Computed example of a mutant assay.
Amino acid sequence: ILLWIASALTPQEIRDRILEVGSTFQQELVQYLESVHMGEFFDGKSMRDIALEVAERESVSKAAGSRYVPPTETLATPPPKRCTLHREQDCSIICFVCEKTSVWWASFRSTVNELLWRTNRHECGSHCLSNKHGTCKARYPREVRAETTVDPDTGYLNLKKGEAWMNTFSSVLTYILRSNTDVTSLLSGTAIKAVIAYVTDYVTKPQLQMHVLFETVRAVL
């Protein structure tokens, strides 16, 4: 989905503001992008941490005589209603609504972590190494960055990424779709034009000729 907001800043205007070192615009933009475009697990956990947690859940279910149902086989649980009295972070007294919300967010992070471990991690094999160079066609492992940096010459944002063997994603989309997703932030006019060209080419692709279609059906059946 490609979104363009009416009356929004142009890519050049955004670039100029990003290059203002220490500006509020730069800080808030980075904060927003890091919240919707992630490349690591929640709570600073590693691939091994999540693997151990999943193994523990499966072990507990097995000991109880039941089958562990992974989040890929369940539907997303909607969040509880928000507290109308105060914000959760401002709650200084015991508040049932805030506590319920806090528990939901903890479950959200745990569920997203497991979904990522099950669906978004890459393992090289014949499917991606079958080329004359013997390199991964999916470009793994990816570059890891401890924090988001700004190129002082171009204004390009190199977003933080903590996992080399996992593509970038949006945690909300992962939680809702319960499957592999690949979310990329279009940080330049060139990238935007490339995506527009790709999508246009894809949706205008001519239909298969009828004899090719029937031949395919016959081969499958």
Rank of each mutant, 00 (worst) to 15 (best):
I1T: 13
I1H: 08
L3G: 01
A6G: 06
S7K: 14
A8L: 09
L9G: 02
T10P: 08
Q12A: 13
E13R: 12
I14M: 13
I14F: 06
R15M: 09
R15V: 11
R17Q: 14
R17F: 02
R17W: 08
I18M: 07
I18K: 03
V21S: 09
G22L: 11
S23Y: 01
Q26C: 10
Q27P: 05
V30G: 03
E34R: 09
S35C: 09
V36F: 12
H37Q: 14
M38P: 04
E40T: 00
E40S: 04
D43N: 07
D43L: 03
A51D: 11
A55N: 01
E56R: 14
S59I: 05
V60E: 09
A64S: 06
S66P: 00
S66W: 05
P70F: 05
T77R: 02
P78H: 01
P80H: 07
K81H: 15
C83K: 09
C83Q: 08
T84E: 11
T84Y: 02
R87W: 13
D90E: 12
D90T: 09
D90M: 07
D90Q: 10
V97F: 04
C98R: 05
K100L: 08
T101D: 05
V103R: 10
V103Q: 14
S107Y: 11
T111S: 08
N113A: 08
E114T: 10
L115D: 01
L115M: 05
W117H: 15
E123S: 10
C124S: 14
C128R: 11
H133Y: 14
A138D: 15
R139G: 03
R139M: 10
Y140D: 00
Y140S: 01
R145K: 14
A146L: 11
A146P: 04
V150T: 12
V150G: 02
N158S: 14
L159C: 11
K161I: 09
E163L: 05
E163H: 02
W165V: 00
W165S: 04
M166T: 03
N167L: 12
F169S: 02
F169H: 13
S170R: 15
V172D: 12
L173C: 05
T174N: 04
Y175E: 01
Y175H: 10
Y175G: 00
Y175W: 08
L177H: 11
T181S: 11
T181Y: 03
D182M: 10
T184S: 10
T184K: 15
S185K: 00
S185P: 02
S188R: 06
G189H: 14
A191C: 03
A194F: 04
V199E: 10
T200Q: 11
T200F: 12
Y202F: 14
T204D: 13
K205Q: 12
P206A: 07
Q207I: 12
L208I: 06
Q209N: 05
M210K: 06
M210D: 13
F214G: 00
E215I: 06
V217F: 15
R218E: 12
L221S: 04
L221D: 03
